[in-house]
């Protein structure tokens, strides 16, 4: 079953008089349970593509369909609703809220979704356990290593059991060992929970973990192969 589909999606940024074509007509379908690596050089449009898939941005032309439903022209409130329940994000810079503990960071999306009391607590503990951080509950981001922070971010992305997790260069700021751990955790969670992962990267170490590799070049899909 398809999770997300882009049809002839373009995205043009206008800065002053200058137009930048980040995406020049992308057709791409991501299926349920896939673990896809989105590769390509800097500026090839990986992040823009993730933002369109993640309902953070609208295409200049073309369509985006989430589970068959056209989400291209949704209002910002509707898109926020969609993100909250359906899509999880993992960013390159870990993107935890400073000052909040690992527990509280993972709790955030659950708070926003109105999950109450013990249910919330159980879910956070389950996720902390899943990413191997049961002992780091009360640690704040500045008290954790980059690898640990990224694992918290993965747990947070998974909190509301989204259908799609979008990771933007999740290993870029990690050393080899931590990068490998993070990829292993993502792959394991993909296999265990069936959650769909799309992982934009130009880190060659990530590719072997993927089941499908989509290559972007100059804003177009230049290669799409299943491993």
């Amino acid at each position: 079953m398809e999770v997300i589909r882009l049809q002839d999606a373009t995205r043009v940024y206008k800065i002053g008089e200058v137009e930048t074509h980040a995406l020049r007509g992308v057709d791409l379908t991501i299926h349920d349970g896939e673990f896809t690596a989105l590769v390509g050089p800097s500026g090839s449009g990986k992040t823009t593509l993730l933002q369109l898939m993640g309902c953070l941005d609208k295409p200049t032309s073309g369509r985006v369909l989430l589970k068959g439903e056209d989400i291209t022209q949704l209002s910002s409130n509707k898109r926020a609703d969609l993100r909250r329940g359906t899509i999880g994000f993992i960013f390159q810079f870990f993107a935890l809220i400073p000052g909040l503990s690992a527990y509280e960071n993972i709790e955030l999306p659950l708070l926003l979704s109105g999950v109450n009391g013990n249910k919330r607590k159980d879910r956070v503990m389950e996720l902390l356990h899943a990413v191997g951080l049961s002992e780091r509950t009360k640690h704040r981001p500045d008290q954790m290593s980059g690898g640990e922070q990224q694992r918290v971010a993965i747990a947070r992305a998974l909190a509301t059991k989204p259908v799609l997790i979008l990771a933007d260069e999740p290993t870029a700021n990690l050393d080899t060992e931590n990068g490998r751990q993070v990829m292993e955790i993502m792959l394991r969670l993909n296999e265990e929970t069936g959650t769909t992962f799309v992982c934009a990267t130009h880190d060659p170490r990530v590719v072997p973990f993927a089941r499908r590799v989509v290559e972007l070049r100059d804003g177009r899909v230049s290669d799409d192969k299943r491993l």
Partner: peptide, 16 residues
Amino acid sequence: VREMGILAALGMKGRQ
């Protein structure tokens, strides 16, 4: 500002 971006990505609406 970036936190606002993260919160928005997590599904927080403008009015929230």
